[in-house]
């Protein structure tokens, strides 16, 4: 074989639901092309077989919630030439970052019969809070076409074409009449990162922000509009406190409205 060695890919899981890794397996026909193009060195969701590092490209899913994981992400970074985080957990701390707003001890005693066995951190933090990250792909879950775009870009040494503007651009290009303006349906699209293709407004639903904050969000202005449409302070508190609760613009906005 005279072919050059294929780049070695690794997929790592931290605190997460595995949904973003599944987006990679969902790629189906593209998955065969990917398997030809890269050597899958570490991807426990797909195969028990593992190859040693260094890895040319590491995809990291999940947030850091335990002392062990805080150590392990350092090892992953050391073993990875490029490190890309995928999904709301890895980029913003995920739904489990709700712990950041409460006392972790209260959860432990409520959930576990013997909390003494549990070693956990009092905050869920994104990967970028621990190690340098080469690219962050937002979404809960991420869109598989965007994941393929990021992988293709890294394989060919170009920038990923992943825009960071609002969902509204995708929504308008698709031709959906605005649900907020035409129906009075509260929608987070104007402050939310594009990438989903405006799925919810396409089904006459308001965006609920699963892709996290867009590049220059203005949540306080949108909140005023939500209030005028009938949303309560509690509604606003809660809508900004979901999968991206710890992303700074959403965190600040949830804190500005009482539960």
């Amino acid at each position: 074989m005279s072919n050059p060695p294929r780049p070695r890919l690794a997929v790592w899981k931290f605190a997460s639901c595995d949904g973003c890794q599944l987006s990679l397996l969902d790629c189906e026909e593209e998955l065969l092309a990917l398997a030809e193009k890269v050597e899958i060195g570490y991807f426990l969701e797909a195969s028990r077989k593992t190859l040693p590092g260094p890895y040319d490209l590491s995809l990291v899913e999940g947030s850091i919630t335990t002392p062990e994981d805080a150590e392990r992400i350092q090892e992953v970074r050391r073993a990875s030439k490029k490190l890309v985080t995928i999904g709301a957990c890895a980029t913003a701390g995920g739904i489990q970052a709700l712990r950041n707003f409460a006392r972790i001890g209260d959860f432990l005693s409520a959930v576990y019969a013997s909390p003494g066995y549990i070693r956990t951190l009092d905050r869920s933090t994104p990967i970028a809070a621990h190690v340098p990250v080469d690219f962050e792909l937002q979404g809960c879950p991420i869109h598989r076409f965007q994941l393929l775009e990021v992988i293709s870009a890294f394989l060919s040494g170009r920038s990923p074409a992943i825009p960071h503007y609002s969902v509204c651009l995708e929504c308008k290009r698709a031709g959906h009449p605005c649900v907020l303006v035409a129906r009075g349906t509260p929608c987070l699209g104007p402050v939310t990162h594009a990438g989903c293709g405006a799925i919810c407004p396409g089904y006459a639903r308001g965006c609920y922000g699963c892709y996290g904050p867009m590049e220059s969000p203005n949540p306080p202005s949108l909140s005023l509009r939500w209030r005028a449409l009938g949303a309560s302070e509690r509604d606003l508190h809660r809508v900004f406190r979901t999968f991206n609760a710890a992303a700074a613009p959403f965190r600040r906005e949830s804190e500005a409205h009482a539960d």
Partner: peptide
């Protein structure tokens, strides 16, 4: 909101960008 809705609905706004994609 810098959401860009005004420019999307404007019948004269003409700006575009290009995205380049490569296959795997």
């Amino acid at each position: 909101l810098a959401c860009a809705n005004c420019t999307m609905v404007c019948p004269t706004c003409f700006c575009s960008t290009v995205e380049d994609h490569t296959t795997l």
